[in-house]
Nucleic acid binder design. Structure first.
Lengths: 333, 333
DNA sequence: AAGATGATGGCAAGCGATTGCCAAATGTTG
DNA sequence: CAACATTTGGCAATCGCTTGCCATCATCTT
């Protein structure tokens, strides 16, 4: 609170008997200054308790050593892993991590980007809700990396939902299910599209029926309506857009006295916190969320670097695997 | 990525036929410039797509319009509400929100503060792990607000654990329990101390026995050892340091075939995501977490303002209430 | 009508670093 | 040993905005 006149490069310079530029270089461009000089400067700086002012540095250099991650909603545990992975990677690189929530709105997302643009070196967009065109547009002005969303020409880190969805179909098929119903998330959600396409294709291959219902809000609260709709559909297996929805469904089914997995099986996506202790424990598609966050930051980090002359944007696809718990079982009958 | 020479105050000034200072004031100090002039400047700015550079602004003014929140670990759902409340409040005030994780370490926490000091106007410390002295020390240099931690002379927002703990004791007493065991979180945790003290006092008042065991890691994984220890203690009711631990305990008890709440009752703290759908659903102390986050930011916001001349630091205590679910029942026998 | 008051706008000096360019010192080479 | 290349350090401009101070000018006051 008190402002005891922070020490600056000039203070250090005077004390060390060199120019301010040398002090600056001692910190940010070591090879540009003699090793012994540097050592001396560093010692003086240490003694004076000097800390470079990141703002001043950023203003001149244009690099903020900061990046922002935009997430639709923190209440969705699905994002924990990703957030944490991203934060860890950033932190390890000495980079400040800004977290913003977009409230599931494309507009908010866009505004956040515009607002933060000057303060950060890049953005990690997790499950971005923005339309493709808007995103491509923004990408020409800003440094973006997507998580769980792919757009031509933009770098991204995604968990393999296609393979995952096939794993789900295989699992259900092997249990004798002849039809499944996919309870979809938001229709403009890229993930929802991916998942449905793969489920549909997989089901077709195996001669299973597949229907899609929805959209449903991808939250626990959405499970009520979703479960009821699924029951009417007559399918013996429910694939929910995500675990939140799946848990809501499980709940509603329990309320209605429907036995899971006796009468109907339920599968989710994400393997969120809680998926293992809900009742019954949820069979769900797990993936290295943390890794995805880390990868996205990695992309941002290397992108700016001189070595990383990117001809084509990096795309990382991470393997997913099905975690089988108690919510799936043999088809009834 | 291309840098099309961002428009500056000077560009706007030239175009609007005023001085740069006027442009600046039109944005940051409206009352200092004539209303019509201002309107004109704003229009020109709009037309030119001008966006003030927050870094430049911060460098000169010393105000960054940014604040940081430090949280021990994002994997703990307990913090969601608080984070979200803080972010919302900050966002509403047009303030950039930085989120940092401290990995449950006091050192990391301190380092983060030092590192971010120049880039933010203040810190929200959630469940800070730092010793009191260190914190007081830091508070003389930085703008701090605590969440779920109280320290003399520092502003804070906490959820009323004392009253909450009494509610727990009352509830258990009314079910006929004669003794409880508190499975403690980290011993240096302020919250753990608070909770135990209140439980102990409450139990004494009602002639109940109360013992403390632990510390246990306040995570689901800590529940195994905790449950076993609790069983040995012979108490008919377990009060876990938090819901994470409680859920772990529930799990272990189920494994061991102990009936909850038939043989033993379990209570947690926080009412985290999942507390309502674990089996059995957890009786737990709920509180307005989001409100706590909001309040902490509020404190930071008003602190700097001229109106908010603080004689004594603000302390907000938010009411808690017990949510009774299925993990508590009449004492056996 | 003259001096006092307040509202407005401009000037210019910073904020604290970075960095292009130059010069001196040092090292290399034939 | 001269000519040239490399290191190393300093100068000073610059990033974009804020703000103290001063000059005007319109508005009051008596």
């Amino acid at each position: 609170m008190s402002t005891p006149k922070r020490t600056t490069v000039y203070d250090v310079a005077r004390e060390a008997g060199v120019a301010a530029s040398t002090v600056s270089r001692a910190f940010s461009n070591p090879r540009r200054v003699n090793a012994t000089t540097r050592q001396h400067v560093l010692e003086v700086a240490e003694r004076l308790g000097y800390r470079p002012n990141p703002l001043a540095s950023a203003l001149q250099s244009g690099h903020t050593a900061t990046l922002a991650m935009l997430v639709p909603d923190i209440a969705n545990p699905h994002f924990f892993g990703t957030i944490r992975g991203a934060e860890r990677r950033a932190s390890a690189a000495g980079i400040t991590f800004i977290l913003g929530f977009t409230e599931e709105s494309a507009d908010t997302e866009r505004n956040q980007i515009e607002r933060l643009a000057r303060s950060v070196d890049g953005f990690v967009l997790a499950s971005s809700r923005m339309p493709e065109a808007t995103t491509v547009d923004l990408a020409s002005e800003h440094n973006l990396a997507l998580v769980n969303r792919e757009i031509d020409g933009l770098p991204s880190a995604v968990i393999d939902n296609a393979s995952g969805s096939h794993q789900i179909v295989d699992h259900l098929a092997s249990l004798g299910h002849r039809s499944l119903v996919y309870l979809s998330g938001p229709h403009h959600s890229w993930l929802a599209g991916q998942r449905w396409r793969a489920l549909h294709a997989g089901a077709a291959q195996r001669g299973m029926g597949a229907r899609r219902l929805g959209p449903f809000p991808p939250q626990v609260a959405g499970g009520g309506a979703a479960a009821d709709a699924a029951l009417v559909s007559g399918a013996s297996a429910i694939v929910a857009h995500n675990d939140l929805l799946a848990i809501g469904i499980l709940r509603r089914l329990a309320e209605r006295g429907v036995d899971v997995p006796g009468e109907i099986s339920v599968v989710g996506y994400d393997d969120i916190f809680g998926a293992d202790f809900c009742a019954p424990a949820l069979t769900t598609l797990a993936g290295p969320q943390e890794e995805a966050g880390r990868a996205a930051v990695e992309i941002l980090l290397t992108k700016g670097s001189p070595t990383g002359v990117q001809d084509s944007p990096r795309r990382v696809v991470l393997p997913s695997h099905l975690v089988i718990r108690d919510s799936t079982g043999p088809a009834p009958g």
